[in-house]
Amino acid sequence: MNLTPEQRIELHGFNNLTKTLSFNMYDICFTKTKEEREAYIEYIDEEYSAERLTKILKSVADIIGAHVLNISQQDYVPQGASVTMLVSEGPVVEVPTESFNESPGPLPESVVMQLDKSHITVHTYPEFHPSEGISTFRADIDVSTCGEISPLKALNFLIHSFDTDIMTIDYRVRGFTRDKNGHKLFIDHNISSIQNYIPDEIKNEFDMIDVNIYQSNIFHTKCRIRYFDLNNYLFGYTKDKLKPHELEEITERLTTEMDEIFYGTNIK
């Protein structure tokens, strides 16, 4: 599709395409003892509490130009949190043409576009392996919009908001809208890859795989951290405290866990 920005807004009625970004991230840690596991879960619950997650989603709403209608938030027992936010059309500060381009979106500085209705949700899932010494934190964020701007413009900010080892990102455009002559439009912007919405400095840190179904407007990107430093995966101590055989064993456990999550299969 090669429409100009002016042509894109010449619609019959409002733009009722539904664009959904699903951002799924994992943080992985080696916790040797029960006390370490409990301390890690406590840290995650504090770092990603419902209150902080709400602040993150409010910034996402600003980026996509949404007015918050309702917020529901909950910290769960024994762990985890959820936030659901309903939003509607927000005020237009400016209408930049670059919002139609494949490029990383802004960090929260100003409202960039308007939309008609939307919802934003986040759910967290801290958990640990009962015997392998692996603790994992997962967060699932969904940003669904109707309007001119793509929720992919919030992806850059979301990546910067979470310390992540593995990311799974899905983007789908559903339904159709019509131009002023009644011609159906099943997508209103060009997109070849989700990777084009990720800054180069972030892409350099990850290995990435794309699986895209262009004819169905479905796009999928998986990202795995490229550089492994064991100190980033030990909770409460550093690798200089470990014996050589412990270094090897823990490294193997962690990298296997990361490979299984990244490839979506159990590895023997």
Rank of each mutant, 00 (worst) to 15 (best):
F23E: 02
M25K: 04
M25D: 03
Y26V: 01
Y26M: 02
D27K: 08
D27A: 06
D27N: 11
I28K: 02
I28M: 02
I28S: 07
F30K: 00
F30G: 01
F30W: 09
F30M: 01
T31I: 04
K32L: 01
T33L: 02
K34C: 00
K34S: 12
E35A: 12
E35V: 04
E35T: 12
E36I: 02
R37P: 04
E38A: 12
A39M: 04
A39R: 12
A39G: 06
Y40H: 09
Y40S: 06
I41V: 13
I41G: 10
I41C: 09
E42A: 14
E42R: 13
E42T: 13
Y43Q: 04
Y43P: 00
I44P: 06
D45V: 05
D45Q: 03
E46G: 01
E47M: 10
E47W: 04
Y48L: 09
S49Q: 04
S49T: 07
S49E: 11
A50M: 08
E51Q: 08
R52W: 04
L53R: 09
L53F: 08
T54K: 11
T54R: 08
K55S: 09
K55A: 05
K55H: 07
L57H: 02
L57P: 03
K58A: 13
S59H: 10
V60L: 04
A61D: 07
A61T: 12
D62E: 15
D62C: 12
I63T: 05
I63G: 01
I64F: 13
G65C: 11
G65R: 13
G65E: 05
G65A: 10
G65V: 12
G65K: 11
A66S: 13
H67P: 06
V68N: 08
L69D: 15
N70M: 15
Q73N: 14
Q73E: 15
Q74A: 12
Y76K: 15
V77S: 15
V77P: 07
Q79G: 14
Q79R: 15
Q79V: 07
G80M: 12
G80F: 10
A81D: 09
V83A: 12
M85H: 02
M85G: 08
M85E: 07
M85V: 15
M85Q: 03
L86W: 10
V87H: 09
S88Q: 09
S88A: 11
P91A: 06
P91I: 03
V92G: 09
V92K: 14
V93H: 01
V93C: 01
V93S: 01
E94Y: 04
E94S: 07
P96L: 03
P96M: 07
P96A: 05
T97L: 01
E98P: 09
E98W: 14
F100W: 13
F100I: 08
N101P: 00
N101Q: 08
N101M: 10
N101V: 04
E102K: 00
P104G: 05
G105A: 08
G105N: 03
P106N: 04
L107P: 00
L107T: 02
E109Y: 03
S110A: 06
S110K: 06
V111S: 10
V112L: 05
M113Y: 03
M113F: 05
M113L: 06
